Amino acid sequence: MTLLDNVRAQHRLIHDHWQIDRLALIAGWSMGAMQGYQWATLYPDAVDALLAVCGSAKCWPLNQVFLSGIAAALQTDPLFQQGSYTRPPLKGLAAFGHCYAGWAYSAAFYRQHLYRQLNFSTREALLHYWEQDHQGRDANDLLCMLHSWQTANIADNAHFGGDFDAAMAAITARTVVMPCTTDSYFTLEEAEMECGLLARGEWRPLASPFGHCAGAPGRLPPAESAFICRAMADLLAA
């Protein structure tokens, strides 16, 4: 399953079933932003505006290495059985969540004990939450998600033949590129490189110590959400 598969399915639902020809705004966080880029590239005539929050048009090398690492942590559980498990590989799922948490936030987040703002009294309590949360997921579903993320590239299709610059240039939507300044997945530098390839790209980084999670809807203190909502309003008003 790829993000290209997802976006083509979404287009069939919106265009063929609901008969909606144009979208005023596509806004997405993380893999949602990656899908937004895919939408704007594949269907430029259908997308007026795009807000890409803490996401990118392709999965860059460091991001791929991170994903390989958490996948490896999951697969080391003997119960995983190369994906043919008969009961959940709970130790592997816990390791997956624990490793994930290390990248989800920033160095400042942990150094300044900002997890307390999320109602976790200690760092260990936060990590335990991430472990338990991922123990409730299906291991193969998580690996499928990682594959979709890791292989994401808006140019990886027959139309663009791997020409990333051409795929970015095909985006005609007004676009706000909004990385978090402390995101370890989708880095500030790589987001700025992508923004420079857009015909109508606006650089509007989200300054936050919450790392990748800064763009997560409704999870954090209101300042981050307000900043994202302002960008949505500006794009819709333009």
Score class of each variant (00 low, 15 high):
residue 38 Q to H: 02
residue 72 A to P: 02
residue 75 Q to L: 00
residue 190 E to S: 12
residue 68 S to L: 13
residue 91 K to N: 13
residue 58 K to N: 07
residue 120 F to L: 09
residue 33 A to N: 00
residue 194 E to T: 12
residue 49 A to C: 06
residue 91 K to E: 13
residue 66 F to N: 09
residue 196 G to V: 04
residue 139 A to C: 03
residue 66 F to K: 09
residue 75 Q to R: 06
residue 93 L to W: 00
residue 93 L to K: 05
residue 166 A to H: 01
residue 202 E to I: 05
residue 228 I to L: 06
residue 11 H to I: 13
residue 235 L to H: 08
residue 228 I to A: 07
residue 74 L to Y: 02
residue 223 A to N: 09
residue 156 D to V: 10
residue 66 F to Y: 11
residue 172 T to S: 12
residue 65 V to T: 11
residue 145 M to R: 06
residue 49 A to F: 02
residue 64 Q to V: 12
residue 94 A to V: 03
residue 34 M to P: 04
residue 76 T to G: 06
residue 109 F to N: 06
residue 1 M to Q: 08
residue 236 L to V: 03
residue 107 A to D: 15
residue 47 V to R: 01
residue 78 P to V: 03
residue 21 D to T: 10
residue 94 A to K: 04
residue 216 A to F: 07
residue 98 H to P: 00
residue 73 A to V: 01
residue 124 E to T: 15
residue 192 E to L: 06
residue 101 A to Y: 01
residue 122 T to A: 14
residue 69 G to T: 01
residue 37 Y to R: 01
residue 157 N to T: 11
residue 50 L to I: 05
residue 67 L to D: 05
residue 124 E to C: 13
residue 183 D to G: 08
residue 31 M to Y: 05
residue 77 D to L: 00
residue 140 N to D: 14
residue 128 H to D: 15
residue 82 Q to K: 11
residue 8 R to A: 07
residue 188 L to W: 03
residue 201 G to P: 08
residue 195 C to Q: 13
residue 33 A to L: 02
residue 13 L to E: 15
residue 118 L to E: 11
residue 203 W to R: 04
residue 104 A to L: 12
residue 89 P to G: 08
residue 135 Q to N: 06
residue 73 A to G: 10
residue 200 R to F: 13
residue 111 R to Y: 05
residue 60 W to M: 12
residue 44 P to T: 04
residue 71 A to D: 02
residue 6 N to P: 01
residue 4 L to K: 11
residue 80 F to T: 00
residue 57 A to V: 02
residue 238 A to H: 14
residue 200 R to I: 08
residue 183 D to C: 09
residue 58 K to G: 01
residue 95 A to S: 08
residue 51 L to N: 04
residue 84 S to A: 14
residue 165 D to K: 15
residue 54 C to T: 03
residue 65 V to N: 03
residue 39 W to P: 01
residue 201 G to L: 07
residue 48 D to R: 10
residue 105 Y to A: 02
residue 60 W to G: 06
residue 86 T to S: 09
residue 193 M to Y: 11
residue 83 G to M: 00
residue 146 L to M: 05
residue 44 P to N: 09
residue 138 D to A: 08
residue 28 G to I: 05
residue 130 W to R: 14
residue 72 A to T: 07
residue 112 Q to I: 01
residue 151 T to E: 13
residue 14 I to Y: 00
residue 89 P to L: 01
residue 46 A to G: 03
residue 144 C to F: 13
residue 105 Y to E: 10
residue 122 T to R: 15
residue 59 C to T: 14
residue 8 R to T: 10
residue 18 W to K: 12
residue 141 D to P: 01
residue 63 N to M: 07
residue 127 L to G: 11
residue 103 W to V: 13
residue 122 T to L: 10
residue 26 I to G: 05
residue 127 L to F: 13
residue 236 L to M: 03
residue 124 E to S: 15
residue 99 C to M: 12
residue 10 Q to N: 14
residue 165 D to M: 07
residue 1 M to H: 12
residue 18 W to H: 14
residue 65 V to Q: 09
residue 129 Y to G: 09
residue 171 I to F: 03
residue 181 T to S: 11
residue 97 G to R: 11
residue 15 H to I: 06
residue 92 G to H: 00
residue 182 T to W: 09
residue 234 D to L: 15
residue 70 I to M: 11
residue 85 Y to L: 02
residue 169 A to W: 00
residue 201 G to M: 04
residue 84 S to R: 15
residue 127 L to H: 14
residue 44 P to H: 08
residue 216 A to H: 12
residue 75 Q to S: 02
residue 63 N to G: 03
residue 121 S to M: 13
residue 94 A to Q: 05
residue 84 S to N: 13
